[in-house]
């Protein structure tokens, strides 16, 4: 498994982040590292990320993925990150175990779509949208490790800024990243 070894720190560590089926709460938590963002900027630069607005990922050292896999687009984005990153980190409950979106998994996705789009009241009955631009829903929401190989997991809904900082700096400094009580939590 790859670590970002200190010796490679002549150049900045390149990090990509994305949110699949998540709420961006984990990204908010990433910003919660507050002034340490400046320290991070010293040693890291960002590839594809809501922070940079780069749409496609290039080769990078660490990819941080928030959110579960809910639709076809999520699959493509996740695979692009996996293909480009040396290390892939699942960030937050949804990426780790499906989280809130996976609570739909006991509902049949077909019935769900039909209920939303075709059984509307007041004569507004329509059809389930069929525009190819729309990402098609998977029948179930999956954590990202059921779709690609994942190297590290940071649970939490969201993980705290401290936990993210601890984990990231462990990784970047080449230590085996570790989260213990009370930084490790699932909620």
């Amino acid at each position: 498994m790859f670590h970002v070894a200190p010796t490679t720190r002549k150049r900045k560590v390149r990090i990509a982040t994305t949110s699949l089926s998540g709420c961006f709460g984990c990204h908010m938590s990433l910003l919660d590292i507050d002034e340490r963002l400046l320290a991070l900027a010293e040693i890291a630069e960002f590839d594809r990320s809501p922070i940079t607005d780069i749409k496609h990922c290039g080769p990078c050292d660490i990819a941080i993925v928030e959110g579960g896999v809910c639709n076809a687009e999520n699959v493509h984005v996740l695979r692009e990150l996996r293909a480009n990153a040396k290390v892939l980190v699942a960030l937050g409950a949804c990426a780790v175990n499906g989280g809130l979106p996976a609570q739909r998994n006991h509902v049949d996705v077909g019935e769900c779509l039909a209920r939303v789009y075709t059984h509307r009241s007041e004569g507004q009955a329509g059809a389930v949208p069929n525009d190819p631009e729309l990402p098609l829903l998977l029948d179930k929401v999956h954590p990202i490790n059921e779709v690609v190989r994942v190297d590290y997991f940071v649970p939490g809904c969201p993980p705290s800024g401290d936990a993210i900082w601890k984990y990231l700096t462990d990784l970047i400094d080449g230590r085996i990243p570790r989260l213990e009580h009370p930084m490790l939590h699932f909620d």
Partner: peptide
């Protein structure tokens, strides 16, 4: 269950979920 997972530093459920209904 959760407390034990913390104590044993379980970071991921690892296996494919069964998603019971």
């Amino acid at each position: 269950l959760q407390a034990l997972a913390y104590d044993l530093e379980m970071l991921t459920p690892h296996f494919e979920h069964f998603y019971p209904s």
